[in-house]
């Protein structure tokens, strides 16, 4: 039964949401936008191919330099380099991906560094503001 599922049971994700999260995480780690996007594409391939998750955290930890900058221009034959090439070749992806809770949590923490907290000003000026919506 769904209600009895333990709270920390392995969660499955779509490739698109992990791509978006990983892209934001790489930006949060301090990488430029284009390299961050290419890392996002490589991350979903890396997970899809069952390669070592620790490769992913290692290159994020190397910010602001290291493979995330280098592989964007020239991916090597390392497992993560292969994931970059898989992304460039648009290698097919499975229906679900299963990152560890640890990796997912780390990506979320890094991605959160790119989010701007709401202020009263941003709320009142934001889309949809200043009008009764129930008409």
């Amino acid at each position: 039964m769904v209600a009895c599922r333990p709270r920390h049971a392995a969660v499955s994700y779509s490739a698109a949401e992990l791509y978006a999260l990983a892209t934001r995480a790489a930006r949060g780690a301090g990488f430029p936008a284009a390299q961050a996007g290419l890392f996002g594409g490589a991350l979903v391939q890396h997970l899809s191919q069952g390669r070592d998750e620790s490769d992913l955290m290692r290159v994020l930890d190397a910010a602001p330099s290291g493979p995330i900058l280098d592989y964007a221009l020239n991916a090597d034959a390392s497992p993560l380099g292969q994931s970059y090439q898989d992304a460039a070749n648009r290698t097919g992806l499975p229906a679900r991906l299963h990152p560890s809770a640890e990796l997912h949590g780390a990506l979320e923490r890094l991605a959160a560094k790119t989010y701007v907290p709401a202020t009263e000003a941003s709320r009142s000026a934001g889309a949809g503001a200043g009008l009764l919506d129930n008409d």
């Binding site: 698109a16 949401e17 229906a95």
Partner: peptide
Amino acid sequence: NGKFGIAD
């Protein structure tokens, strides 16, 4: 397209 876990 995959938002909140729906299908890619």
